[in-house]
Amino acid sequence: MEYLVTMTTKVPEGTSAQDVDAVRAREAEHTRELAAQGRVLRLWRPPLAPGEWRTIGLFTADDAEDLERTLASMPLRVWRTDEPVPLGPHGNDPGRGTVATAAGEDEYLVTFTVQTPFDADTAAVERMDAQEAGRARELAGQGNLIRLWTLPGKGRNLGLWQAPDADTMDSVLRSLPMTAAGWLTVETVPLTRHPSDPGA
């Protein structure tokens, strides 16, 4: 099973720079080990305010307890809080390793919330689902859609996307049939690659 984990680190006041560097070095080494085991798939940094230290990670684990053992084994956990979100399979997901991350492309996490009109009948919903699936295949083929998952809660999904810039990403999202029809709301988070990202 895959999980998206937001990791927020707060170094205690008075901790020396030497101690911080030592823990970060151990963290980087252990992350390489976890990546080799297939437990850490990707690491990114979201936009940060001054003084913030956050990482978003894509992990695999058998279940929540197995994930917790992995997170607890990481050296930075002594200063860190973790917020895991389970990711479910999505029918339009291209699949892990199908779409390569491209050098020079920016990556984005996009949360989608589907809001089906109350007066849409079953046939209309099926047509829209089919159009959305077809467009997702096209965008995966073009290298824009990397992964797609379901999130906890009705009608919520998460996508990992790439594009040369934010304007292109916005155009790609507006090309989705559900977006054009007003059935989707989206929240986009631009990402930068973490120095320990296994996908780099």
Results as ranks from 00 to 15, higher is better:
Gly153Cys: 11
Gln115Arg: 15
Pro190Ile: 10
Gly159Gln: 04
Gly199Met: 13
Ala166Glu: 14
Asp129His: 09
Ile146His: 00
Ala17Phe: 05
Gly153Glu: 13
Ser196Ala: 15
Ala28His: 11
Val99Phe: 00
Arg42Met: 08
Arg32Lys: 15
Gly95Asp: 11
Asp119Ser: 12
Val20Phe: 03
Val99Asp: 02
Ala22Gly: 04
Asp63Leu: 07
Ser73Phe: 02
Val85Ala: 09
Thr188Leu: 06
Leu58Phe: 05
Glu29Ala: 12
Pro177Tyr: 01
Asp82Ser: 06
Thr168Tyr: 01
Val40Arg: 07
Val11Cys: 01
Leu148Gln: 05
Leu145Ala: 03
Ile146Cys: 02
Val189Ile: 15
Thr98Asn: 02
Glu65Met: 10
Arg45Ala: 07
Phe59Met: 11
Val23Gly: 06
Asn144Ile: 04
Pro117Lys: 09
Ala25Lys: 14
Asn92Met: 12
Glu132Val: 11
Gly141Lys: 10
Arg193Pro: 07
Glu52Trp: 06
Val110Tyr: 01
Glu138Leu: 14
Thr168Ser: 07
Glu33Gln: 14
Ala61Asn: 12
Pro89Cys: 05
Thr9Asp: 05
Arg45Thr: 14
Asp21Ile: 00
Thr122Pro: 00
Leu176Gln: 09
Pro94Ala: 03
Ala61Glu: 08
Pro195Ser: 05
Thr70Ala: 14
Arg24Leu: 15
Leu4Tyr: 00
Gly153Arg: 13
Tyr3Trp: 12
Gln18Tyr: 07
Thr101Ile: 10
His194Leu: 08
Leu43Gln: 10
Val20Pro: 09
Gly88Phe: 05
Arg24Gln: 14
Thr192Gln: 10
Ser175Asp: 09
Glu13Phe: 03
Pro84Thr: 07
Arg39His: 08
Pro164Arg: 13
Trp44Arg: 01
Arg193Ala: 04
Ala25His: 09
Thr116Phe: 03
Leu158Gly: 02
Asn92Ile: 01
Asp165Trp: 06
Asp21Pro: 00
Thr111Gly: 03
Gln131Asp: 15
His194Val: 09
Ala133Asp: 13
Leu158Ala: 03
Val20Glu: 13
Ser196Trp: 03
Leu87Ser: 07
Met169Thr: 04
Ala180Asp: 11
Met178Asp: 14
